[in-house]
């Protein structure tokens, strides 16, 4: 495995220990530093924590949060929780996808953008909501303002 990935995993294993119940926390920490969970990393975790690779794969694929492939540079998450849905979240999603010419979950050809959906980020008072790169939350959107925000990153 590429040597630069090992320290990130080791750090998490040191923090959480090798007990099986720590698996999800180790995966979280690793994904946070690497951006995704490449196969070689999972193999390494399997060896270090003495869990079978198939079990790890089972856990990784069960949870929406974990990603096996590298993500786009900018991830735009539109909320389709109930509050956002009744306030037009779908129109926001469609506007963003149209602008980027992709379907939800696809990555643009240049690898720069992807549009995903999420069920509620807990900002329902600001519906409809989108989150850029997991941290910048924008609310009370219209399709137009959503595109304006997107274009700032383009």
């Amino acid at each position: 495995m590429e040597s630069e990935k090992i320290p990130a995993v080791d750090k998490e294993i040191r923090k959480w220990g090798t007990k099986h119940e720590s698996l999800i926390q180790v995966l979280h920490g690793t994904q946070e530093s690497l951006g995704y969970l490449p196969e070689e990393v999972l193999t390494y975790i399997a060896k270090k924590m003495n869990v079978s690779l198939s079990k790890i794969y089972g856990v990784v694929t069960f949870y929406n949060f974990f990603k096996l492939t590298k993500d786009a540079e900018h991830v735009i998450t539109t909320c389709l929780g109930t509050a956002c849905y009744v306030k037009g979240g779908e129109a926001i999603l469609n506007a963003l996808c149209n602008r980027l010419d992709i379907k939800p979950n696809e990555i643009t050809k240049d690898g720069r953008f992807t549009v995903r959906t999420v069920r509620c980020v807990g900002c329902c008072g600001f519906a409809p909501v989108m989150v850029v790169d997991g941290k910048d939350i924008h609310g009370k959107l219209t399709p137009e303002t959503a595109i304006d925000i997107l274009e700032k990153y383009m």
Binding site: G81, T82, G125
Partner: peptide, 12 residues
């Protein structure tokens, strides 16, 4: 875990 999509009492 507050899974109900459209609710954020616990978060607050």
């Amino acid at each position: 875990d507050e899974g109900d999509p459209g609710a954020y009492m616990n978060r607050s």
